[in-house]
Design a protein around this nucleic acid. Structure first.
Lengths: 352, 352
DNA sequence: GCGGTTGCAGCAACCGATTGCAGCCATCGT
DNA sequence: ACGATGGCTGCAATCGGTTGCTGCAACCGC
């Protein structure tokens, strides 16, 4: 509760000099006792620690940054905060940074490479490194950026820059396998937004097990990842004669589910559904729907750890080789998944 | 494209000393020319500016912070990033901060007063001020916090601390007026999460015009603000004999709409719907549904401006008196709003 | 024409830490 | 017992700006 102004000129925050005076050592010794304990005799170290504790000493971040060249700030750039996928990434990163006494500076790239680089440029000497979530910049530009400051990319893989990606394709493959095992042969894929880097990957992941079983994937879209899109896609979907549909996104899935229900299509009896994330909790709420639980927090944490490793390595002279981490996703729900209906799904009258 | 290493010892970022040397003035003059132009003769000022431009000079943030005591960082604490209401607040704040060369440090309070204060404490001497969005801490504690650093509160009003709030109650009153004008007399309110500060306000705002017209508000809940909750609330709603329902939140409204549709209740013929925000776009997508468009970006921007005013005032000695800003909300949709059905809505058989 | 402003620029101290180097003392080897 | 070694500690320079104070010169009015 007290602000800790026990000794020293009251009102001012305690400085290292105050601690040193109280502990009866020089400022340099106090500095070392606190930040490089192994360089100081045990007794001294404890006296300094006690003094620091007593006055509630805390390093002045700017002063420290000035000499060490490290600010304790990590920039995290996300395309938007409106997409609920990124919220847990940010929170995970924050947690990880917090644990090691760093802070995350979140900035929003708004899906524009130009703005992204503008931000990086502006923050260049204010942060120790960058995390770019689903960056829109070109590979060259990002590699250049990395030359200046350590960089970790999330949700996109590229050579020469450390990355953290989800194994969503793996999850989709699993979904596809489940569906084919159940007997589905014609599966619709409700595509994601135009220009999505991941969209083709996802489609491909879905396609593999299906074609192997002699089935087909019908691609719909592109659609923006919204509830509305799901509703829009429903009509198109029913014309395809698919017995199952996989949505790019769980928000889209909700819209799809809504419109299908209105049209009298029963899930999963007439049509099986699945989606590539689990941000709205569909997977848990509807056991008949398959969803992929994406541990986005882990990605944030991992990215921070990876970034710190690069920062430390660079500070120590030896530039770290980029590493690529893949985070597995979990198939949730689908316990009540159903085989395809005896006859192709869409009851014609439902289209009225 | 070039990093701007034109003169000086290549590789190192240019310092003020480099600029001074090139411009042929002392470091102090260079400093003043750039940060307090009015203290320097026009000619000198231009020479310095030109030199700075030429070498791509930028102030070293930490060095500057060390002497001025201002870091250019503003902490913004939100309860969570998962709630889409806060995303635009953050983005608005970021925009505003960016314009004046500051950065926003976003932190997540996770709805815990304890964590909130822990964060504030940790960031105390790293930022110039705080913005607390929907803070959970007690009034006393927040007022204390303000004594230490400038503080602006968003989405909560309290004495002694500047605030920015939405006029959601005003919007709800408008909705209530529209409903009563259409002839509705029994309106259900799907309550928000337990412990919500705003929930009673919203209910009250709804109640006023209704009781004045001789009607009633039936309160349901509390419900967490999710799609699921809406689905859950549908059943309860139908037992109340209401002819209209207002949801705390648009996500809940979507769930409600979904379940109602499944149950065969037509909107708005059997039941009119409205909700207190517009984050999922319902208001635009369903012209028969009334929603409140909440300009959350504006709140973020306004909060930053207010905070900067307090920071500057405090730096100048005279402590600013707290100000309270109210941001109007817009009623969107509802163009196709309907009067109550001839007989109370819930077709008994729908409850089966 | 002279004392008194006024405007502009520079010197040097300072913000709060870190760190290379030097000095000190104790311990060790022989 | 004496020089060498090594572990601790302190001095002072440094990081990159800011700012109070001083000094200089041009300009003012009388």
């Amino acid at each position: 509760m007290t602000t800790g102004e026990i000794d020293g000129a009251a009102g001012r925050a305690p400085r290292l000099a105050d601690v040193a005076r109280i502990a009866g050592v020089s400022v340099s010794t106090a500095s070392r006792a606190l930040s490089r304990p192994e360089m100081v005799a045990a007794g001294t170290r404890e006296r300094v620690a006690a003094a620091a504790e007593r006055v509630g000493f805390r390093f002045h971040p700017s002063a420290r940054a000035l000499t060490t060249g490290r600010t304790g700030l990590l920039a995290l750039c996300v395309p938007t905060l409106a997409n609920p996928l990124y919220a847990p990434v940010v929170e995970g990163a924050q947690r990880a940074a917090e644990e090691i006494g760093n802070e995350i500076l979140v900035v929003v790239g708004e899906g524009s490479a130009e703005r992204e680089f503008g931000l990086f440029e502006r923050l260049r000497d204010q942060v120790d490194g960058f995390i770019a979530v689903r960056p829109h910049g070109g590979e060259r530009a990002l590699a250049d950026l990395r030359r200046g400051k350590p960089l970790v990319v999330v949700n996109r893989r590229m050579r020469g820059v450390s990355s953290v990606v989800f194994d969503t394709p793996g999850g989709l493959r699993e979904i596809a396998e489940r569906l084919t095992a159940l007997g589905h042969r014609r599966v619709a894929y409700i595509g994601g937004p135009e220009g999505s880097w991941m969209d083709p990957m996802r489609r491909a992941a879905l396609e593999w097990p299906l074609t192997e079983a002699g089935g087909t994937v019908v691609t719909l879209g592109p659609y923006p990842p919204t509830f509305e899109s799901g509703m829009d896609a429903a009509g198109e979907l029913l014309t395809t004669g698919s017995t199952a549909a996989v949505a790019y996104n769980s928000m889209t899935l909700l819209g799809l589910l809504h419109r299908l229900t209105v049209l009298g299509v029963r899930v999963p009896d007439d049509l099986s559904l699945a989606c590539a994330d689990d941000l709205t909790g569909v997977g848990l709420a509807h056991p008949d729907i398959m969803a992929l639980h994406v541990p986005a927090q882990d990605a944030g944490e991992l990215a921070v750890r990876e970034l710190m490793a690069e920062i430390d390595a660079r500070a120590a002279g030896h530039d770290a080789r980029p590493r690529h981490r893949v985070i597995p996703v979990d198939l949730v729900g689908g316990d009540a998944a159903a085989p395809p209906p005896p006859r192709p799904a869409p009851p014609e009258e439902a289209l009225a």
